[in-house]
């Protein structure tokens, strides 16, 4: 049973880590725009040829549609 003395606090710490992660994500505004987050993965803004004007964005628009 001595094993509980450190296993229980360890479990709580892991749970607490999850809570801290949740509070951090809340504070950093990740719940402000749930729909946007879902569709932002579709945009190609991480490709090397970073668009400097509207043209690249137009291309990605066509691709998505």
């Amino acid at each position: 049973m001595n094993v509980l003395v450190y296993l229980v606090p360890l479990a709580l710490m892991l749970g607490g880590l999850g809570l801290v992660a949740f509070l951090w994500s809340l504070k950093s505004g990740q719940y402000e725009d749930l729909e946007g987050a879902a569709v932002r993965v579709l945009s190609d803004d991480d490709l090397p040829e970073t668009p400097s004007d509207g043209r690249a964005a137009d291309r990605s628009r066509e691709r998505v549609k």
């Binding site: 945009s43 803004d45 509207g54 628009r61 691709r63 549609k65």
Partner: peptide
């Protein structure tokens, strides 16, 4: 649509 996000953001950032 989803592409509007990139279009608006890159357009304004430019």
């Amino acid at each position: 649509c989803a592409a509007c996000i990139a279009e608006i953001e890159t357009g304004i950032m430019a």
